[in-house]
Nucleic acid binder design. Structure first.
Ligand code: SF4
Ligand code: SF4
Lengths: 146, 146
DNA sequence: ACATAGAGGACCGGAGAGGTCCTGTAAATA
DNA sequence: TATTTACAGGACCTCTCCGGTCCTCTATGT
């Protein structure tokens, strides 16, 4: 089973698409939908959320569109995911203390903290720029993401 | 949001509970439900699945119960999760090739492979034994899971 | 003014998670 | 052998939330 919502998956695809040609700053939603073959209404929804979270900047009006708010190297994948489906955490106790009813009697909460942190850090290390680089293997190995 | 199903969460909790006292081999489902404060029917369901997947051994009859099939050090958390909710993969393309309709036109499939692998390996390194050890911090640091 | 494109929602249907229960079958004991 | 206990394997139900669409409003360029 996949644990990443499609919303987040689409978000990563779209961010990567925007990072492909570093110059051409502005892409509008319709254009991006065609490039990625994703349903247009979904693309709009995702882009709006990413903008509200400060990962994209938008321009309204006749020549409007979206562009990366920062250089792709400074946007970790974890930010994209958390913008679209909340904080990255495998367990309920990882998102906010007290969100799991079994917390008082649970003995594995602390170990999960470490695991959650490790996974979060993995997703922190990979940036949107890494998604569009060819010869990814080398780059990922350097990041400790074998 | 949490991406781990409650079924898998319960599974980890129960495996850890079984690993707590290394000797006392046999715990029955009702006993485990009381120890963990989890709803009894759920506990039964989870234990049955874990047994079918070979992570536990079961004994029927009047003094029946469940026990770890192997020493806790040899049971990675990833196995517990995959037994209860399928293979660990963030993206649809990570579980089986062809499971995502956008695969042909998707440019981020390859990068995701590396990320998926990194996360899987993290969950492979942590074993059930690590969940019941005190002073977890040191142990996890040694595993590269900071 | 007018056409375009984003902002921000409401809205809906279906899938799947969470949870319960029922009927078998194996094992131990009297 | 009869009985009791506890696992095996499902079916089944409910309810949330995901995936997806659509509508109205506002900002911008011509
Ligand atoms: S407190 Fe325990 S049961 Fe609750 S989410 Fe955390 S690990 Fe799971
Ligand atoms: S192929 Fe692309 S769109 Fe499909 S699941 Fe993989 S990353 Fe996501």
């Amino acid at each position: 089973m996949l644990r990443l919502s499609k919303l987040a998956d689409y978000g990563v695809v779209l961010m990567a698409e925007l990072a492909r040609d570093p110059e051409c700053g502005s892409h509008n939603a319709r254009e991006l939908a065609e490039l990625t073959r994703l349903p247009f209404p979904m693309v709009g929804k995702v882009l709006k959320r990413l903008t509200r979270d400060g990962l994209l900047v938008s321009q309204r009006g006749i020549h409007g569109g979206y562009a990366l708010a920062r250089p792709a190297e400074q946007i970790p994948v974890s930010k994209v995911i958390s913008a679209l489906e909340g904080p990255v955490a495998l367990t309920a106790c990882g998102v906010a203390p007290g969100s799991c009813e079994h917390e008082p009697s649970c003995h594995v909460r602390t170990p999960w903290e470490y695991i959650n942190r490790a996974i979060t850090e993995t997703l922190d290390r990979v940036t949107v720029a890494d998604l569009v680089r060819p010869a990814s293997a080398i780059a990922f190995a350097e990041l400790g993401v074998r």
